[in-house]
């Protein structure tokens, strides 16, 4: 089957299963609305959904930028300096040991109901996967190539730029794919704890008013954002590492 058609077939299959569950179980629409009802809601409330989707998407994107920036900074510092690594590694582990969800109320308290607390949540949740992936990639550079660079009179920095960073790109791209998948979770959890806009906020309010079809519509939009982001990051990763696809001859 063509790889272009496969996602479409999977999406249609899931919709069919959803509709089948609605029909076979006889669950009333205020518990589980069918795809038809939710589609109607998607169209009817499109401006509302788009507005909140825009807020959530900005939180996710800003969080990814921030988390990737600090994650890369952390990983590169750890590779450049043994001394720094001894200090930063425990910090990295601690950053992962504290459940980010438990931090959500504190972040909302500190940073307010606006964008900042959700950006911080998304950044925190992707910090560990991004840092760990890049660190792993940087440390997996071929020791022979590093030796060669040394005999060529390369400085630490130029070795990093010309040898280690390109070698780490595939691992870094994997880290970013994980980040794209989990960043929306961070943003939405942040919105649930306290917010005035965003898809998480919309879902919470819809749930309070028993607007179950709106909840599902928001959920669908969120899924589309997450999948789109993942596909984009995957595609970018592939574009940045073209030599990987030709490795196996």
């Amino acid at each position: 089957m063509s790889t272009n058609l496969r996602p479409l077939v999977i999406a249609l299959g899931l919709l069919a299963i959803w509709q089948a569950v609605v029909w076979l179980s006889g669950v009333p629409p205020f518990i589980l609305p069918g795809p038809g009802l939710v589609s109607a809601k998607l169209v009817e409330d499109a401006p509302l959904l788009l507005h909140h989707a825009g807020v959530t998407l900005s939180e996710i994107l800003l969080g990814m930028l921030l988390g990737t920036f600090f994650g890369s900074l952390f990983a590169i510092s750890m590779v450049l300096s043994q001394g720094l690594r001894a200090w930063l590694l425990p910090l990295l582990v601690i950053s992962q040991a504290i459940p980010v969800f438990a931090l959500a109320p504190i972040l909302v308290l500190w940073l307010g109901y606006g964008l900042a607390s959700k950006v911080a949540m998304a950044a925190l949740i992707i910090f560990f996967p991004v840092t760990a992936a890049l660190l792993d990639g940087l440390r997996r550079a071929d020791p022979g190539q590093l030796d060669l660079a040394r005999t060529m009179g390369a400085s630490r920095l130029s070795t990093l730029v010309h040898v280690q960073l390109p070698a780490a790109l595939p691992a870094f791209a994997s880290g970013l794919r994980v980040a794209a998948a989990v960043a929306p979770i961070g943003a939405v959890v942040g919105e649930w704890v306290g917010s005035s806009a965003g898809l998480g906020h919309l879902m919470l309010h819809a749930s309070g008013r028993m607007q179950i079809d709106l909840m599902f519509a928001a959920l669908l939009v969120l899924a589309v954002i997450a999948i789109g982001l993942y596909a984009l990051v995957s595609w970018l990763g592939g574009r940045l590492t073209p030599w990987r696809s030709e490795r196996d001859r």
Partner: peptide, 17 residues
């Protein structure tokens, strides 16, 4: 280096310095 062309691999020393 797998990401560089043959020519750029030959030029690696110059780039590194």
């Amino acid at each position: 280096l797998p990401w560089l062309s043959a020519r750029d691999n030959v030029l690696l020393g110059a780039r590194l310095r």
